[in-house]
Computed example of a mutant assay.
Amino acid sequence: MVDGKLVGVHEVNVELADGTFKTYYYAWRGKGAPRIFPKPGTKAFTQEFVRLTRDREKKVKEKTVAEGTIGSLIDEFVKTAAYQTLAPSTRRDYERQFETIRLQFERFPVQAIEARGSRKLFLTWRDTMKDAPRSADMHIALLSRLFSWAKGNEDILRNPLEEVERLHEGTRRDIIWSDEQLTKLIAEGVPHLRDVALIALWTMQRQADVLTMPTIAFDGDRVSIKQGKTGAKVRVMVAPDILPGLRKAKEGEQQRVLVNSFGQNWTSSGFRASWRKEMKRLGITGVTFHDLRGTAITYAYSHLDRSHAEKIKLISEISGHSEADAETIIRKHYLAGQEVIDAIGRGTKKHREV
Protein backbone atom coordinates (compact mmCIF):
# COMPACT_ATOMS: atom_id res chain seq x y z
CA MET A 1 0.00 0.00 0.00
CA VAL A 2 1.47 3.33 -1.10
CA ASP A 3 -0.72 5.53 1.05
CA GLY A 4 -3.10 4.41 3.77
CA LYS A 5 -5.69 6.84 2.48
CA LEU A 6 -5.69 5.43 -1.04
CA VAL A 7 -7.43 2.17 -0.32
CA GLY A 8 -7.19 -0.26 -3.22
CA VAL A 9 -3.96 0.84 -4.91
CA HIS A 10 -2.28 -2.32 -6.23
CA GLU A 11 1.53 -2.59 -6.49
CA VAL A 12 3.23 -4.95 -8.93
CA ASN A 13 7.00 -5.52 -8.85
CA VAL A 14 8.32 -6.37 -12.32
CA GLU A 15 11.80 -7.64 -13.13
CA LEU A 16 13.29 -5.79 -16.08
CA ALA A 17 15.62 -7.17 -18.74
CA ASP A 18 18.70 -5.85 -16.96
CA GLY A 19 17.82 -7.72 -13.79
CA THR A 20 16.57 -4.70 -11.85
CA PHE A 21 13.09 -4.42 -10.42
CA LYS A 22 10.53 -1.69 -11.00
CA THR A 23 7.23 -1.13 -9.21
CA TYR A 24 4.09 -0.36 -11.19
CA TYR A 25 0.96 0.99 -9.55
CA TYR A 26 -2.63 0.23 -10.54
CA ALA A 27 -5.90 1.76 -9.39
CA TRP A 28 -7.13 -1.63 -8.20
CA ARG A 29 -6.26 -5.33 -8.34
CA GLY A 30 -7.47 -7.41 -11.23
CA LYS A 31 -7.60 -7.73 -15.00
CA GLY A 32 -8.15 -4.47 -16.84
CA ALA A 33 -7.11 -2.27 -13.92
CA PRO A 34 -5.63 1.02 -15.24
CA ARG A 35 -2.06 1.95 -14.39
CA ILE A 36 -1.31 5.11 -12.38
CA PHE A 37 1.64 6.86 -14.02
CA PRO A 38 2.42 9.87 -11.73
CA LYS A 39 5.00 9.44 -8.99
CA PRO A 40 3.63 7.86 -5.76
CA GLY A 41 3.14 10.28 -2.87
CA THR A 42 2.50 13.25 -5.15
CA LYS A 43 -0.68 15.26 -5.56
CA ALA A 44 -0.87 14.17 -9.18
CA PHE A 45 -0.81 10.50 -8.10
CA THR A 46 -3.72 11.04 -5.71
CA GLN A 47 -5.73 13.00 -8.28
CA GLU A 48 -5.27 10.29 -10.90
CA PHE A 49 -6.28 7.57 -8.45
CA VAL A 50 -9.43 9.48 -7.50
CA ARG A 51 -10.32 10.07 -11.16
CA LEU A 52 -9.89 6.43 -12.15
CA THR A 53 -11.79 4.99 -9.19
CA ARG A 54 -14.59 7.57 -9.51
CA ASP A 55 -15.11 6.65 -13.16
CA ARG A 56 -15.12 2.97 -12.21
CA GLU A 57 -17.73 3.48 -9.49
CA LYS A 58 -19.86 5.47 -11.93
CA LYS A 59 -19.72 2.70 -14.54
CA VAL A 60 -20.56 0.04 -11.95
CA LYS A 61 -23.48 2.14 -10.73
CA GLU A 62 -24.82 2.63 -14.25
CA LYS A 63 -24.86 -1.14 -14.72
CA THR A 64 -26.65 -1.85 -11.46
CA VAL A 65 -29.46 0.72 -11.66
CA ALA A 66 -32.66 -1.26 -12.11
CA GLU A 67 -34.89 -0.47 -15.07
CA GLY A 68 -38.30 1.03 -14.35
CA THR A 69 -37.13 2.95 -11.28
CA ILE A 70 -36.57 6.58 -10.34
CA GLY A 71 -32.86 5.83 -10.62
CA SER A 72 -33.25 4.82 -14.26
CA LEU A 73 -35.40 7.90 -14.92
CA ILE A 74 -32.60 10.10 -13.61
CA ASP A 75 -30.08 8.31 -15.82
CA GLU A 76 -32.26 8.93 -18.89
CA PHE A 77 -33.05 12.53 -17.94
CA VAL A 78 -29.41 13.63 -17.56
CA LYS A 79 -28.66 12.33 -21.08
CA THR A 80 -31.31 14.49 -22.75
CA ALA A 81 -30.32 17.36 -25.01
CA ALA A 82 -32.27 19.81 -22.84
CA TYR A 83 -30.33 18.80 -19.73
CA GLN A 84 -26.97 18.92 -21.50
CA THR A 85 -27.61 22.52 -22.64
CA LEU A 86 -27.98 23.71 -19.04
CA ALA A 87 -25.17 25.82 -17.61
CA PRO A 88 -22.35 23.72 -16.09
CA SER A 89 -22.97 25.30 -12.68
CA THR A 90 -26.66 24.35 -12.88
CA ARG A 91 -25.81 20.76 -13.81
CA ARG A 92 -23.40 20.52 -10.89
CA ASP A 93 -26.13 21.70 -8.52
CA TYR A 94 -28.58 19.19 -10.00
CA GLU A 95 -26.07 16.35 -9.74
CA ARG A 96 -25.63 17.01 -6.02
CA GLN A 97 -29.39 17.08 -5.52
CA PHE A 98 -29.89 13.93 -7.60
CA GLU A 99 -27.39 12.10 -5.39
CA THR A 100 -29.56 12.89 -2.36
CA ILE A 101 -32.68 11.80 -4.26
CA ARG A 102 -31.00 8.55 -5.29
CA LEU A 103 -30.16 7.70 -1.69
CA GLN A 104 -33.87 7.68 -0.86
CA PHE A 105 -35.59 6.70 -4.11
CA GLU A 106 -33.03 4.95 -6.35
CA ARG A 107 -35.12 1.76 -6.60
CA PHE A 108 -38.56 3.36 -6.26
CA PRO A 109 -40.76 1.86 -9.05
CA VAL A 110 -41.87 4.22 -11.82
CA GLN A 111 -45.38 2.76 -11.70
CA ALA A 112 -45.67 3.75 -8.04
CA ILE A 113 -44.95 7.41 -8.82
CA GLU A 114 -48.46 7.97 -10.15
CA ALA A 115 -50.17 5.83 -7.52
CA ARG A 116 -52.45 7.47 -4.99
CA GLY A 117 -50.55 8.45 -1.86
CA SER A 118 -47.20 9.04 -3.60
CA ARG A 119 -47.46 12.81 -3.25
CA LYS A 120 -47.72 12.50 0.53
CA LEU A 121 -44.74 10.13 0.58
CA PHE A 122 -42.52 12.53 -1.40
CA LEU A 123 -43.57 15.55 0.66
CA THR A 124 -42.94 13.67 3.89
CA TRP A 125 -39.40 13.04 2.65
CA ARG A 126 -39.02 16.73 1.80
CA ASP A 127 -40.16 17.67 5.31
CA THR A 128 -37.28 15.68 6.79
CA MET A 129 -35.12 18.53 5.42
CA LYS A 130 -37.32 21.31 6.84
CA ASP A 131 -34.45 22.69 8.93
CA ALA A 132 -32.95 23.78 5.59
CA PRO A 133 -36.16 24.88 3.81
CA ARG A 134 -34.51 26.37 0.73
CA SER A 135 -32.55 23.16 0.11
CA ALA A 136 -35.68 21.09 0.72
CA ASP A 137 -37.57 23.14 -1.86
CA MET A 138 -34.82 22.77 -4.44
CA HIS A 139 -34.76 18.98 -4.04
CA ILE A 140 -38.52 18.59 -4.37
CA ALA A 141 -38.57 21.04 -7.31
CA LEU A 142 -35.96 18.98 -9.14
CA LEU A 143 -37.87 15.77 -8.42
CA SER A 144 -41.00 17.48 -9.78
CA ARG A 145 -39.08 18.53 -12.89
CA LEU A 146 -37.96 14.94 -13.38
CA PHE A 147 -41.55 13.73 -13.09
CA SER A 148 -42.77 16.45 -15.47
CA TRP A 149 -40.24 15.25 -18.04
CA ALA A 150 -41.31 11.63 -17.47
CA LYS A 151 -44.94 12.61 -17.96
CA GLY A 152 -44.13 14.37 -21.22
CA ASN A 153 -42.21 11.27 -22.26
CA GLU A 154 -45.28 9.14 -21.40
CA ASP A 155 -43.39 7.15 -18.78
CA ILE A 156 -46.00 8.22 -16.21
CA LEU A 157 -49.53 9.59 -16.56
CA ARG A 158 -49.41 12.22 -13.83
CA ASN A 159 -46.90 14.27 -11.90
CA PRO A 160 -47.77 13.98 -8.19
CA LEU A 161 -45.63 17.01 -7.34
CA GLU A 162 -47.40 19.68 -9.36
CA GLU A 163 -48.24 22.93 -7.50
CA VAL A 164 -46.27 22.12 -4.36
CA GLU A 165 -46.11 25.01 -1.90
CA ARG A 166 -42.64 26.11 -0.87
CA LEU A 167 -41.29 25.82 2.64
CA HIS A 168 -38.89 28.69 2.07
CA GLU A 169 -40.53 32.12 1.98
CA GLY A 170 -37.48 34.19 1.14
CA THR A 171 -38.28 34.69 -2.55
CA ARG A 172 -36.78 37.73 -4.28
CA ARG A 173 -39.92 38.16 -6.38
CA ASP A 174 -41.29 40.44 -3.69
CA ILE A 175 -38.41 42.92 -4.00
CA ILE A 176 -37.70 45.64 -6.57
CA TRP A 177 -35.43 48.67 -6.58
CA SER A 178 -36.98 51.90 -5.27
CA ASP A 179 -37.02 55.28 -6.97
CA GLU A 180 -34.23 56.57 -4.73
CA GLN A 181 -32.03 53.49 -5.13
CA LEU A 182 -32.22 53.46 -8.92
CA THR A 183 -31.57 57.18 -9.20
CA LYS A 184 -28.52 56.90 -6.97
CA LEU A 185 -27.09 53.90 -8.81
CA ILE A 186 -27.51 55.33 -12.30
CA ALA A 187 -26.49 58.90 -11.45
CA GLU A 188 -23.65 58.23 -8.98
CA GLY A 189 -22.40 54.70 -9.64
CA VAL A 190 -18.91 54.19 -11.04
CA PRO A 191 -19.12 53.79 -14.85
CA HIS A 192 -17.88 50.19 -15.14
CA LEU A 193 -20.53 48.98 -12.66
CA ARG A 194 -23.29 51.37 -13.67
CA ASP A 195 -22.97 50.14 -17.28
CA VAL A 196 -23.43 46.52 -16.17
CA ALA A 197 -26.56 47.50 -14.25
CA LEU A 198 -27.96 49.48 -17.19
CA ILE A 199 -27.57 46.60 -19.64
CA ALA A 200 -29.08 44.17 -17.13
CA LEU A 201 -31.97 46.58 -16.55
CA TRP A 202 -32.74 47.18 -20.23
CA THR A 203 -32.29 43.58 -21.41
CA MET A 204 -33.70 41.75 -18.32
CA GLN A 205 -30.82 39.27 -18.42
CA ARG A 206 -29.07 37.45 -15.59
CA GLN A 207 -25.77 38.65 -14.21
CA ALA A 208 -23.70 35.87 -15.82
CA ASP A 209 -25.27 36.44 -19.25
CA VAL A 210 -24.64 40.18 -19.07
CA LEU A 211 -21.02 39.87 -17.93
CA THR A 212 -20.12 37.34 -20.64
CA MET A 213 -22.02 39.04 -23.48
CA PRO A 214 -19.64 39.10 -26.51
CA THR A 215 -19.44 42.17 -28.73
CA ILE A 216 -20.43 40.02 -31.71
CA ALA A 217 -23.83 39.52 -30.04
CA PHE A 218 -24.69 43.11 -30.98
CA ASP A 219 -25.68 43.59 -34.64
CA GLY A 220 -26.32 47.33 -34.47
CA ASP A 221 -29.98 47.08 -33.44
CA ARG A 222 -30.33 43.97 -31.27
CA VAL A 223 -28.31 41.71 -29.01
CA SER A 224 -28.57 37.95 -29.40
CA ILE A 225 -28.24 36.05 -26.15
CA LYS A 226 -28.10 32.37 -25.27
CA GLN A 227 -29.08 32.26 -21.62
CA GLY A 228 -26.59 30.20 -19.67
CA LYS A 229 -29.03 28.88 -17.08
CA THR A 230 -31.81 27.71 -19.41
CA GLY A 231 -30.12 27.51 -22.81
CA ALA A 232 -32.89 29.69 -24.25
CA LYS A 233 -31.97 31.94 -27.19
CA VAL A 234 -33.41 35.46 -27.30
CA ARG A 235 -32.91 38.60 -29.39
CA VAL A 236 -33.48 41.85 -27.54
CA MET A 237 -34.01 45.22 -29.21
CA VAL A 238 -31.43 47.66 -27.83
CA ALA A 239 -32.75 50.63 -25.85
CA PRO A 240 -31.33 54.11 -26.66
CA ASP A 241 -29.84 54.33 -23.16
CA ILE A 242 -27.39 51.47 -23.75
CA LEU A 243 -26.86 51.90 -27.49
CA PRO A 244 -23.77 54.21 -27.19
CA GLY A 245 -22.00 51.77 -24.89
CA LEU A 246 -22.69 48.83 -27.19
CA ARG A 247 -21.46 50.75 -30.21
CA LYS A 248 -18.29 51.78 -28.41
CA ALA A 249 -17.57 48.18 -27.43
CA LYS A 250 -18.26 47.02 -30.99
CA GLU A 251 -15.82 49.55 -32.43
CA GLY A 252 -13.10 48.74 -29.91
CA GLU A 253 -10.93 45.67 -29.62
CA GLN A 254 -12.53 44.16 -26.52
CA GLN A 255 -14.13 40.74 -26.92
CA ARG A 256 -16.91 41.39 -24.42
CA VAL A 257 -19.34 44.28 -24.18
CA LEU A 258 -18.58 44.87 -20.51
CA VAL A 259 -15.16 45.06 -18.88
CA ASN A 260 -13.87 46.04 -15.46
CA SER A 261 -12.02 49.22 -14.52
CA PHE A 262 -8.78 47.73 -15.91
CA GLY A 263 -10.36 47.03 -19.29
CA GLN A 264 -10.31 43.29 -18.61
CA ASN A 265 -13.11 40.72 -18.79
CA TRP A 266 -15.10 40.41 -15.59
CA THR A 267 -14.86 37.29 -13.46
CA SER A 268 -17.95 36.38 -11.47
CA SER A 269 -16.10 36.64 -8.15
CA GLY A 270 -14.47 39.92 -9.14
CA PHE A 271 -17.78 41.44 -10.11
CA ARG A 272 -19.52 40.33 -6.91
CA ALA A 273 -16.76 41.83 -4.78
CA SER A 274 -16.81 45.12 -6.71
CA TRP A 275 -20.60 45.25 -6.62
CA ARG A 276 -20.74 44.75 -2.84
CA LYS A 277 -18.13 47.45 -2.33
CA GLU A 278 -20.02 49.90 -4.57
CA MET A 279 -23.38 49.24 -2.92
CA LYS A 280 -21.77 49.95 0.44
CA ARG A 281 -20.27 53.21 -0.89
CA LEU A 282 -23.63 54.32 -2.31
CA GLY A 283 -25.51 53.26 0.81
CA ILE A 284 -27.87 50.97 -1.14
CA THR A 285 -29.20 48.10 0.97
CA GLY A 286 -32.04 45.58 0.87
CA VAL A 287 -31.79 44.85 -2.88
CA THR A 288 -29.49 42.73 -5.00
CA PHE A 289 -28.23 42.85 -8.56
CA HIS A 290 -30.67 40.07 -9.41
CA ASP A 291 -33.56 42.27 -8.27
CA LEU A 292 -32.95 44.51 -11.28
CA ARG A 293 -34.74 41.89 -13.38
CA GLY A 294 -37.94 42.17 -11.40
CA THR A 295 -37.65 45.95 -11.55
CA ALA A 296 -37.21 45.83 -15.34
CA ILE A 297 -40.24 43.55 -15.70
CA THR A 298 -42.39 46.05 -13.82
CA TYR A 299 -41.09 48.80 -16.07
CA ALA A 300 -41.70 46.87 -19.29
CA TYR A 301 -45.22 45.82 -18.35
CA SER A 302 -46.40 49.38 -17.79
CA HIS A 303 -45.00 50.54 -21.15
CA LEU A 304 -46.18 47.75 -23.45
CA ASP A 305 -49.28 48.59 -25.48
CA ARG A 306 -50.64 45.05 -25.50
CA SER A 307 -53.19 42.90 -23.69
CA HIS A 308 -52.23 41.51 -20.30
CA ALA A 309 -51.61 38.01 -21.68
CA GLU A 310 -49.50 39.34 -24.56
CA LYS A 311 -47.41 41.45 -22.19
CA ILE A 312 -46.72 38.48 -19.93
CA LYS A 313 -45.72 36.30 -22.89
CA LEU A 314 -43.36 38.89 -24.38
CA ILE A 315 -41.70 39.67 -21.05
CA SER A 316 -41.15 36.01 -20.15
CA GLU A 317 -39.63 35.32 -23.59
CA ILE A 318 -36.99 38.01 -23.03
CA SER A 319 -36.35 37.79 -19.30
CA GLY A 320 -36.12 34.02 -18.95
CA HIS A 321 -38.78 33.95 -16.21
CA SER A 322 -41.70 31.59 -16.53
CA GLU A 323 -44.97 33.32 -17.38
CA ALA A 324 -46.24 32.50 -13.90
CA ASP A 325 -43.22 34.12 -12.23
CA ALA A 326 -43.43 37.19 -14.48
CA GLU A 327 -47.10 37.61 -13.60
CA THR A 328 -46.37 37.25 -9.87
CA ILE A 329 -43.82 40.06 -10.06
CA ILE A 330 -46.18 42.31 -11.99
CA ARG A 331 -49.17 41.72 -9.73
CA LYS A 332 -46.99 42.49 -6.73
CA HIS A 333 -45.39 45.64 -8.09
CA TYR A 334 -47.43 47.11 -10.93
CA LEU A 335 -48.73 49.97 -8.79
CA ALA A 336 -45.14 50.96 -8.11
CA GLY A 337 -44.29 50.77 -11.81
CA GLN A 338 -44.52 54.45 -12.63
CA GLU A 339 -42.20 55.31 -9.75
CA VAL A 340 -39.63 52.92 -11.17
CA ILE A 341 -40.01 54.28 -14.70
CA ASP A 342 -39.55 57.84 -13.53
CA ALA A 343 -36.43 56.83 -11.60
CA ILE A 344 -34.86 55.14 -14.62
CA GLY A 345 -35.74 58.08 -16.82
CA ARG A 346 -34.26 60.66 -14.46
CA GLY A 347 -31.13 58.62 -13.84
CA THR A 348 -30.41 57.90 -17.49
CA LYS A 349 -31.08 61.50 -18.44
CA LYS A 350 -28.45 62.65 -15.93
CA HIS A 351 -26.11 59.97 -17.29
CA ARG A 352 -26.53 61.31 -20.87
CA GLU A 353 -25.96 64.90 -19.79
CA VAL A 354 -22.64 64.11 -18.06
Rank of each mutant, 00 (worst) to 15 (best):
R56D: 04
Q47A: 15
I297M: 08
G231W: 05
H308L: 06
R306F: 04
K31P: 07
L193D: 06
T288E: 11
S269R: 06
P34D: 04
R102C: 12
A150W: 01
E162V: 15
V196A: 11
L6Q: 05
G71K: 01
Q97A: 10
V7K: 15
L243R: 15
L103K: 14
P34C: 07
D75L: 14
A66S: 13
E327M: 11
S135G: 11
D209M: 12
R29T: 12
K5G: 15
R96S: 14
T212Q: 08
A273R: 07
I74F: 03
E339G: 05
K184I: 08
L314W: 05
G347K: 01
R272D: 05
T80N: 04
E67P: 08
R96D: 11
K332Y: 06
E67G: 02
V164K: 00
N13R: 14
W275N: 00
L282D: 02
P214N: 01
A87K: 07
H139N: 13
I74A: 03
D3P: 05
S316D: 07
V190N: 04
R222C: 01
Q264R: 15
G286E: 02
I318H: 05
T183Y: 13
V65F: 02
E15P: 10
R281A: 13
A324P: 03
L146D: 02
P240L: 08
L16K: 11
R247S: 04
H308S: 10
K248T: 03
R166T: 12
R102W: 03
R126M: 12
S72Q: 09
L282V: 04
R54L: 13
F262P: 00
T23G: 06
G189N: 07
I318Y: 01
V14I: 15
V50C: 02
D195W: 03
V236Y: 02
Q97N: 10
A33Y: 04
R281T: 06
S72M: 06
A200V: 09
K120G: 07
L335Y: 00
T90A: 08
N153D: 12
P244L: 06
D137S: 05
E251I: 04
K39D: 10
V236T: 10
L143S: 05
E57V: 14
R306E: 12
L198F: 05
W202S: 03
S274R: 01
T203H: 02
T124A: 15
I140G: 07
V234S: 06
H333P: 09
R173F: 11
A326R: 07
L201V: 10
H321T: 14
T285F: 09
T212K: 10
V110P: 00
R56M: 08
D305T: 11
D174W: 01
A324R: 13
V234H: 03
A112H: 06
T348F: 03
F21T: 15
K280A: 14
P133W: 03
K43I: 12
R119F: 10
V210P: 03
